[in-house]
Amino acid sequence: MNKGDLVNEVAKLVSTKKQAQEVIDCVFGAVVDALKSNDTVQIAGFGSFKTAKREARTGRNPQTGAEIKIEARIVPKFVPAKALKDAVN
Results as ranks from 00 to 15, higher is better:
residue 2 N to F: 06
residue 3 K to T: 11
residue 3 K to N: 04
residue 6 L to G: 04
residue 7 V to Y: 11
residue 8 N to M: 08
residue 8 N to T: 13
residue 9 E to W: 01
residue 9 E to L: 14
residue 10 V to T: 06
residue 11 A to G: 05
residue 11 A to M: 11
residue 11 A to K: 05
residue 11 A to Y: 08
residue 12 K to V: 11
residue 12 K to S: 12
residue 14 V to D: 07
residue 14 V to F: 10
residue 16 T to M: 12
residue 16 T to R: 14
residue 17 K to T: 12
residue 17 K to L: 10
residue 18 K to I: 07
residue 19 Q to D: 15
residue 19 Q to Y: 01
residue 20 A to K: 13
residue 21 Q to S: 13
residue 21 Q to E: 15
residue 22 E to P: 00
residue 23 V to R: 08
residue 23 V to K: 03
residue 24 I to L: 15
residue 24 I to V: 15
residue 24 I to S: 06
residue 24 I to Y: 07
residue 25 D to Y: 03
residue 25 D to K: 09
residue 25 D to V: 01
residue 26 C to Q: 11
residue 27 V to Y: 02
residue 27 V to G: 02
residue 28 F to K: 01
residue 28 F to C: 05
residue 29 G to R: 04
residue 31 V to M: 15
residue 32 V to E: 14
residue 33 D to F: 02
residue 33 D to I: 02
residue 34 A to K: 12
residue 34 A to C: 13
residue 34 A to E: 02
residue 35 L to I: 13
residue 35 L to P: 03
residue 36 K to D: 04
residue 36 K to P: 02
residue 36 K to I: 11
residue 36 K to M: 11
residue 37 S to I: 07
residue 37 S to N: 14
residue 37 S to D: 13
residue 37 S to F: 09
residue 38 N to A: 12
residue 39 D to S: 11
residue 39 D to R: 15
residue 40 T to A: 15
residue 40 T to Q: 14
residue 40 T to I: 08
residue 41 V to H: 09
residue 41 V to R: 05
residue 41 V to G: 04
residue 41 V to F: 09
residue 41 V to M: 05
residue 41 V to W: 07
residue 42 Q to I: 07
residue 44 A to V: 15
residue 44 A to G: 01
residue 44 A to S: 14
residue 44 A to K: 12
residue 44 A to E: 02
residue 45 G to L: 10
residue 45 G to S: 06
residue 46 F to M: 05
residue 47 G to W: 06
residue 48 S to P: 00
residue 48 S to E: 05
residue 49 F to P: 03
residue 49 F to A: 09
residue 51 T to V: 15
residue 52 A to K: 14
residue 52 A to R: 13
residue 53 K to N: 10
residue 54 R to K: 15
residue 54 R to N: 10
residue 54 R to H: 12
residue 54 R to Q: 12
residue 54 R to L: 10
residue 55 E to C: 00
residue 56 A to C: 09
residue 56 A to K: 13
residue 56 A to M: 09
residue 56 A to G: 08
residue 57 R to D: 07
residue 60 R to W: 06
residue 60 R to L: 12
residue 60 R to V: 11
residue 61 N to E: 03
residue 61 N to D: 07
residue 61 N to Y: 07
residue 61 N to L: 05
residue 62 P to C: 10
residue 64 T to C: 06
residue 64 T to A: 02
residue 65 G to F: 12
residue 65 G to K: 08
residue 65 G to D: 01
residue 66 A to R: 09
residue 67 E to I: 02
residue 68 I to S: 06
residue 68 I to M: 08
residue 69 K to Q: 14
residue 70 I to K: 04
residue 72 A to I: 08
residue 72 A to E: 12
residue 73 R to E: 04
residue 73 R to C: 09
residue 75 V to G: 04
residue 76 P to Q: 05
residue 76 P to I: 07
residue 77 K to E: 02
residue 77 K to R: 15
residue 77 K to Q: 11
residue 77 K to N: 05
residue 79 V to H: 03
residue 79 V to S: 14
residue 79 V to I: 14
residue 80 P to D: 08
residue 81 A to S: 15
residue 81 A to T: 03
residue 81 A to M: 07
residue 81 A to H: 09
residue 83 A to I: 06
residue 83 A to V: 13
residue 86 D to N: 14
residue 87 A to H: 03
residue 87 A to G: 06
residue 88 V to G: 01
residue 88 V to Y: 03
residue 89 N to T: 10
residue 89 N to Y: 02
residue 89 N to I: 09
